[in-house]
Design a protein around this nucleic acid. Structure first.
Lengths: 332, 332
DNA sequence: AAAAGCAATGTAACCGGTTACATTAAGGTT
DNA sequence: AACCTTAATGTAACCGGTTACATTGCTTTT
């Protein structure tokens, strides 16, 4: 394989000169530069980036820990990450963790073994919390989307509590008073915040919290389907359901219709995320739009700032309530 | 940072012995091994894998070129790739190409610059076709899912022609004779094969091909929505529509209902891929199930075989027609 | 007992770049 | 003309592992 020494030989200069001609063209004479470039061309020389990286101790790779790539919201976040990383000359090492903490820890350790420069964690878990890592060293990481309360690093998130409150207020404004909620995984701070927002709206409207209206889920259509089954089986069934993800909302609508009920006539349904399918469901889904790609882009920008030693502040992203046909006035 | 020399010093042995104690424990004496392991532990030593990779000229990274990660079918394929790669000790460098050939070429060149060992291309394009690459060298690559006719590498694909024929035969068996088709991008061999299968079924049933029933699309819900608009505006509108992807089928169903028509009563709809939402649409979608994760796993296995110098054969994956409620007998 | 064989370990070259430092040559100053 | 400055280039150390080859010391063979 052609290396820098072959090129140097071909051009009749030293390897240092070749390196300089390519990296800092301004400090070699035009004539030499010309010679070197010709030799590079002739030899079909491409620098062995592994050697470059090894020398500089930078890989220009970022590890991304994603709970599940099958969720279209995360797919969009990853799109944003990938785009921004590419622009800045970084590669993206993807890890679909499925919430497996051992796997997250293992991938995060790519940073300590120098196969990656930093980590973007999209789940509320500190992959460096394992004993294997030196507690002292703050390893380069950004926690985005689903954020730890005591994250050991900068974070990018949504004001989930405010967003959930806004959806719930929308349903209350439509006259609903029995509002079910299909939640995310129990231990997630994201789920807790959204439930708090839901409760904020209820208590502001003077509606008592009914625990039976709260169903756990895991963000999949199946979970939404099953939770809806529970909710419509209640003796006093809800007239509206707020789902913590569009995927669950789609599952819930499917079950509601299967029971012979209509959306929104019998039950209004609201989701969260505004995935691509949200405007193509029947009826189109009322939901909270999150700037998914921007989440990814910002996380990359912040991580690179961290890697470059700059000070980085936490970021809160904006959201929008999109009112579509799946929510309508309550008909008693 | 602690390196192998520090460990050697601490253990009172040479660096070579440390290296051997870790890599081939059987060729050092038990006593020495013990000493070395203790020193490793004490120093908190982790090998710098960048150095290892540099030395061995293997990165244990695979580049994956995916047309769009936002498509849930590809998200599943990537899951499979990631899982298999992880098991075999490889990382996955993801590139969401959006069909941009320059980007694909750029990422593929990571192989020539030794930042990755091989490429899995999920689109019908040879990223090494650029002049920048030496034509002679067959670079390690697998072409999966959407496969080139003259792929310069092993391939994993579906028998798209047979699958499309089976869907179309299913519709014909239900009595449909005017069957619309919402296709993929014009130049894709995958689209061509599926159209051929569609035509095979038609001609076997003695139905003449009507060009007006063929609409191009790009696999997104929006494309399906728009194509359906065109189809239902025809003076003699189709009684069934075969979509080349579930995402388009979902868009199409949305437009059909918007027009006040019912699925399947007025128009049957069939998709392709069996994405997670396919069973939660209203009505649930008849479709072709593809083993998406298996595609990914097989591609990884094949690529690693290639990297290890083994001979690799092309692979054809199985499919299944899933008959759901979106297709029903034709009512004239 | 000398020779041969072998296990365990050490020495140092090596991978392919980058870069601190040394050297050379050319131009400018007094 | 001697001295200084600066630009251009060369030399070689360096990053952190791996491994071919050399060395040492012990055991076995004849």
């Amino acid at each position: 394989m052609t290396n820098i020494r072959k090129v140097a030989e071909l051009a009749g200069v030293s390897v240092a000169t070749v390196s300089r001609a390519l990296k800092s063209p301004d400090i070699v004479s035009p004539a030499t530069r010309e010679k070197v470039l010709k030799a590079v061309d002739q030899a079909g020389y491409k620098p062995n980036l592994m050697a470059v990286q090894f020398r500089s101790q930078r890989t220009y790779n970022l590890v991304v820990l994603v709970p599940t790539i099958a969720n279209t919201f995360f797919a969009r976040v990853i799109s944003g990450i990938q785009e921004a990383a590419q622009e800045r000359g970084y590669g993206v090492l993807l890890c679909n963790t499925l919430g497996d903490e051992a796997m997250e820890t293992q991938y995060a350790s790519l940073v300590t073994t120098r196969q990656a420069d930093g980590v973007i964690q999209l789940r509320a878990f500190n992959p460096f919390s394992d004993n294997a890592f030196p507690a002292a060293a703050a390893l380069p990481m950004i926690n985005a989307c689903e954020v730890l309360d005591d994250a050991p690093c900068p974070t990018v998130k949504l004001d989930n509590r405010a967003a959930a409150r806004e959806v719930t207020e929308h349903l209350i404004a439509l006259g609903h008073r029995r509002i079910g909620m299909i939640k995310g995984p129990r231990r997630s701070p994201l789920t807790r915040d959204r439930q708090l927002g839901y409760q904020d709206a209820l208590s502001a409207a003077g509606i008592a919290l009914d625990e039976r209206l709260l169903c756990p889920g895991d963000f999949t259509p199946l979970a939404g389907y099953q939770a809806a089954e529970t909710l419509i089986a209640l003796t006093e069934r809800p007239t509206a359901i707020f789902c913590e993800s569009d995927e669950m909302a789609i599952g819930a609508m499917s079950r509601i219709k299967e029971a012979g009920l209509r959306v929104p006539d019998d039950i209004s349904v609201a989701g969260f995320d505004d995935i691509a399918f949200a405007s193509y469901t029947d009826p189109p889904l009322t939901t909270i739009a999150q700037p998914a790609e921007a989440f990814g882009r910002e996380a990359v920008a912040m991580l690179i700032d961290v890697l470059e030693g700059q000070k980085v502040d936490n970021l809160v992203m904006p959201y929008t309530l999109l009112t579509r046909a799946s929510t309508a006035p309550c008909r008693p």
